[in-house]
Design a protein around this nucleic acid. Sequence first.
DNA 1: ATGAAAGCGCTAACAA
DNA 2: TTGTTAGCGCTTTCAT
Lengths: 344, 344
Amino acid sequence: MKQRPRESRRTAAKMTDIARLAGVHVSTVSRALAGSPLVEASKRKRIVQLAREHGYVVNPVARSLRLQRTQMVSVVIPLQHAAGQPLTDPFFVAMLGHLAEAVTQRGYGMNLQKIVLPTHEWLDEIIASGRSDGVVVIGQSTEHETLQRAAANYLPLVVWGAQLPGQKYCTVGSDNPGGAARAVRHLLQGGRRRIVFLGDPTGPELRQRYEGYAHALRDGPPGTAAPRTVPAELTPDAAYQAVRECIAAGEAFDALFAASDVIAISAIRALTNEGLAVPHDVAVVGFDDIALAAHTTPSLTTVRQDLEQGARTLVDLLFRRLDGEETASVTLPAELVIRDSAPA
Amino acid sequence: MKQRPRESRRTAAKMTDIARLAGVHVSTVSRALAGSPLVEASKRKRIVQLAREHGYVVNPVARSLRLQRTQMVSVVIPLQHAAGQPLTDPFFVAMLGHLAEAVTQRGYGMNLQKIVLPTHEWLDEIIASGRSDGVVVIGQSTEHETLQRAAANYLPLVVWGAQLPGQKYCTVGSDNPGGAARAVRHLLQGGRRRIVFLGDPTGPELRQRYEGYAHALRDGPPGTAAPRTVPAELTPDAAYQAVRECIAAGEAFDALFAASDVIAISAIRALTNEGLAVPHDVAVVGFDDIALAAHTTPSLTTVRQDLEQGARTLVDLLFRRLDGEETASVTLPAELVIRDSAPA
DNA sequence: ATGAAAGCGCTAACAA
DNA sequence: TTGTTAGCGCTTTCAT
């Protein structure tokens, strides 16, 4: 058993050390460092100066224990399959960046947790642990019930995802059905009639995208083929495989609506490699508008989610909940961005 | 002044509550939950069961205070300018994802800090605070001296960046000079003679890339133009502007080596918009091999940094340092990936 | 095998 | 204005 050598870390100064140096009681130092007007101004300055000279900073662990408040926000990503969407997926990673931005701007720290196969009580444990003052969950995954339960007695919780009927927790998410419907109508207007849905509509967000797709198809002109799903996990490889197999099986389609940009891009490569021209033979629309989307060949027509606004909204709602407000869920617009993979 | 309403959060169970329920002393619960063989097996099981039923989890704040160990790793990103590389830059964001993966795999949490204009003692404060057991700094920025000072008496610190002479802290980074030189030699082999460096070689990593560039040019065939820098911050807009201005100023060049992919891609757009064909008129090579690079039009020839391996190595070294080992710095290979923006 | 008690570093109610 | 004191929730030595 290896041990932590003490010499490796200079023992950090404690508040009592500063108190001794200043010749005052530790409580005076605490007050001085908190800028309390109770402490005589000159003395306060002296103490603050002393602390700085000695590189002293208040120990947040002790402070948190005493105050029962951590100044931390937990960001949790429940992933369904270990092999599924990795943490490095452009969507997550952009969301994380924006969240970090918004959280640190408020003087809070952010701690990041990835939950692989959500085990029994993952969320309750995070909440009960008191490691953070509030929780942001990115994606409902298959955890709707868990979220419902947790929200029943824990206010400072916000979730990125779809808004569901009877939902008790607060979500921020894009208008998935609307965005998907716009994408499909765009394809229909372009004369496409056999439009396939690529993705696995298990989680609420993807299901909503599927429903928007199916709904728009039902309202399509005569000759519009019925909805058809090509199931695929949200990874490049899975999507690439799924599309190739679909083509090999001889299925005919003239457009593809993908549940995410990542799989849309893979689909384009699969189609191209199979000798199908995009958009001539098959038009492709994605979902997300990741940074990559504008630069692919052909550039990707997609439904844009504004993750920066999403993250800012999540954090804003979380802090209002920390202040006791029962905030309502927010749905953000999902706008169609027309590029070359499905031109006007 | 708003107040935190107590009703919003069910008061979490404490260890003493479980002790009372089990009819034992809190120390026995502590031992039981830690799986100590001292506690009689049946009693231990009963206690663990009780804890689970009541959704009890050990409070990590109290635990950390007692053990003087947090099971947390701080990840810090010092940024030079508020306006510079945002946290959402693909490089950072990919690095973050990989780090999160590696850290959580070891059962540690990760807390994320973004330091905008590094103030006096940012690193010392993070270390002194005891918020985490170890620190990963992403990028040296202009903070070499700060890192030197901190490393003098704090072992569990690792840095992504360039290895510098006389360096006392442990870095993991790509072979910047080698990678840059390979990129430039590739351009020279393709017949390019007037190769410009795009970027601002202020920080150590970019300086090393510049040096690799300059070095390769000096060894170039007769007729090779001397090194020339077009300074630009690592943002798409700054780079786009810089390149357009450079063209407008009538400067002649037939190739461009960009300090990062993000600015390389912007450069391509600037060149194209100015009527210069890539690679015909101007070849472009980037640095990073971000996900986007393979999908731009034309696809980007670039120097690949393996961030996954980088992150794994950082975390591996950090944990060895937590165990007291004085690990040496590691330089990872930086391989040239030839695509269409500078074909063979 | 279990309990008692001390103490991690800090803040705040209370006393002076 | 400052000091004294209790205690946040936990682990661990020591005593039993």
